[in-house]
Amino acid sequence: MSRIELLTENFRSVRRYTNMVIDGISPDDWFRVPDACPTHIAWQIGHITIGNYGLALAIPRGDRPDDVELVPLSFREQFARGSTPDADPTAYPSIELITSTFNRVHDQILAELPTFTDELLDDSPPLEHPMFSTKFGSLLWSIQHGYTHAGQISLLYRLNGGTPRF
């Protein structure tokens, strides 16, 4: 199996897992912040989206002018690392826009992965990161990052009164 095939399989796997976690969660729970918890499900999904965009698209192939159509700048600011989740749903795009952006970025990753060469995968990223030293590592970290936040979504669901999903 090539590295691109491995990445593709794993991007699909983390998406299946995340979809299983969020499937059937009430829209009322997407912005609910449990006691003593600093985040909510909507922020987690938006953050996974921004992480996937940055780690799996922007770092490997660079930002492109038309990426603002893929992920609007305001969306990036709301969900970027270091942003502060707000329990007010009116401070965010709709759940539909959050999930459609989530899906659009995933689809773009799957569309572009086959164009990434071994040379590109072995290149150093344009910035230092404690979790990877190559663009291939950035792509792998994107998958791991997605699983981490899917786990947080599962915990948020439970803290909001949901029963175990699996």
Rank of each mutant, 00 (worst) to 15 (best):
M1V: 15
M1R: 15
S2V: 12
R3F: 05
L6M: 11
L7C: 09
T8P: 00
T8I: 06
N10H: 08
S13A: 11
V14S: 06
R15G: 07
T18L: 13
N19A: 03
N19F: 01
D23A: 12
G24A: 11
I25W: 00
S26F: 06
F31H: 15
F31Y: 14
R32Q: 14
I41F: 06
I41T: 09
W43M: 05
I45K: 00
T49V: 12
Y53S: 15
G54Y: 15
A56Q: 04
L57M: 10
L57V: 13
I59F: 15
I59D: 10
R61T: 14
G62T: 13
G62Y: 13
R64P: 01
R64C: 04
D66R: 14
V68L: 02
L70S: 05
L70R: 02
L73T: 14
S74Y: 04
S74P: 00
R76I: 08
R76T: 06
R76F: 04
T84L: 11
A87N: 08
D88H: 02
D88R: 04
P89D: 14
A91R: 12
S94M: 11
E96R: 10
E96W: 06
L97F: 07
L97G: 02
I98D: 09
T101K: 06
F102M: 07
R104T: 05
R104Q: 04
V105T: 10
V105K: 08
V105Q: 11
H106R: 13
L110G: 07
L110D: 08
A111Y: 10
E112R: 14
P114D: 05
P114V: 04
P114N: 04
P114L: 05
T115I: 01
T117N: 02
T117A: 04
D118R: 02
E119Y: 01
D123N: 09
E128D: 11
H129W: 00
P130M: 07
F132I: 10
F132E: 12
S133Y: 01
T134I: 10
G137Y: 01
G137E: 06
G137I: 02
G137L: 02
S138F: 01
S138K: 00
L140Q: 12
L140Y: 11
I143C: 03
H145Y: 06
T148Q: 13
H149M: 01
I153G: 12
I153F: 11
S154M: 12
S154H: 14
Y157W: 14
L159V: 00
N160Y: 00
T163P: 05
